[in-house]
């Protein structure tokens, strides 16, 4: 997160999100529950707070000062978040951070892609792709699709399909266990990595970071650890009922940043993979098409090419 080009790219997306959300909900009638009032990085010790602040100072300098954040001590934080507990010494407030309802985003996108004439084939398992003339995508059930360009955005599926199209696709799964409480009255105003409250009232807690391959299970120790941290941050959560949990696999590149890459062997094939697909959704919808079509307005995404993994 502390890489300058990525910080810029996610700021670009954050700035584009409001317009993107408005357009999507106008077109589909789904409220995306977007709130962009900032988010916190909560700290339980002065040392960790100071260390993080100095990292952000360095980043801010690299970006020529264009990286706004504020540091709140316990009392200032408490004025913003009355439910915060005494163990939290302070927080870093990123004003641009926000929260959207990912399920509503999914539904709105599913509607809008179709509304705009996109065809979505579901239940198709892509087994192979090649380029005899046009690109040819082959599915397990025998379906074939031909296209001038192809974008590989198959998440962890790119581990196997990437090399077929000439990509390195050096990605791996990392498990994040997440849990969600019953619907509660407003308790948390701004999101943090520890807990956030969705527009429906449920409080989402987590996630863990675990290197366990493709195992997306949930463990009692994982849940207990998340609960302990959340209760330390917001003590009144102790009485909240946990109703759901799940284990999800992050799609991580070696440095954790997105990969945007055109295939060197098969021009016209692009790899797009990232771990923050909701944060970056606006940038992907607004600016990636220019990059895919190679127009003058294309964003410079060189910093996210696969080359970085051979150089380092």
């Amino acid at each position: 997160m502390k890489q300058p080009r990525y910080a810029q790219w996610s700021q670009t997306s954050a700035a584009a999100w409001a317009g993107f959300a408005a357009e999507l909900s106008d077109a589909t009638g789904h409220d995306l529950g977007l709130e962009q009032n900032g988010g916190y990085d909560l700290h339980f010790s002065e040392e960790s707070l100071e260390a993080t602040v100095s990292q952000y100072e360095v980043l801010k300098e690299k970006l020529g000062g264009d990286y706004p954040f504020e540091v709140l001590g316990h009392n200032a934080l408490r004025r913003e978040e009355p439910a915060i507990g005494p163990k939290v010494v302070g927080a870093i407030l990123h004003r641009q951070d926000g929260h959207a309802n990912p399920l509503n985003l999914l539904r709105a996108l599913a509607d809008d892609v179709r509304r705009l004439g996109g065809q979505v084939l579901t239940g198709k398992h892509v087994t192979h792709a090649d380029k005899p003339d046009l690109f040819r995508v082959s599915c397990a059930d025998g379906t074939e699709v031909h296209a001038r360009k192809i974008v590989l955005s198959a998440g962890l599926g790119a581990m196997s399909l990437g090399p077929v199209l000439g990509f390195k696709a050096p990605i791996r799964p990392q498990r994040g266990q997440v849990m969600i409480t019953e619907k509660l009255p407003k308790l948390i105003n701004r999101p943090s990595l520890i807990a956030r409250q969705t527009d429906e009232g449920g409080i989402q807690i987590g996630a863990t970071n675990e290197e366990v391959g493709l195992n997306n299970g949930v463990t009692q120790t994982g849940l207990s650890g998340l609960a302990a941290e959340a209760v330390a941050a917001f003590p009144s959560l102790a009485k909240a009922q946990l109703v759901r949990s799940w284990g999800a696999l992050r799609i991580l590149s070696p440095d954790g940043l997105p990969i945007y890459q055109e295939s060197p062997d098969m021009p016209g094939a692009y790899l797009v993979t990232c771990h923050s697909g909701v944060t970056l959704a606006a940038a992907h919808a607004r600016f990636l098409p220019d990059w895919l079509e190679g127009t003058d307005g294309a964003p410079n995404l060189e910093a996210f090419s696969e080359d970085r993994f051979t150089l380092s």
């Binding site: 949930v218 009692q220 849940l223 207990s224 009485k239 009922q241 946990l242 949990s245 284990g247």
Partner: peptide, 20 residues
């Protein structure tokens, strides 16, 4: 179906982390 099979309070869960 994922755990918890039945809702459990955050406090109960958190206490189990402490005991471990």
């Amino acid at each position: 179906i994922r755990p918890p099979l039945k809702p459990v309070t955050m406090g109960e869960l958190a206490a189990m982390a402490a005991s471990e």
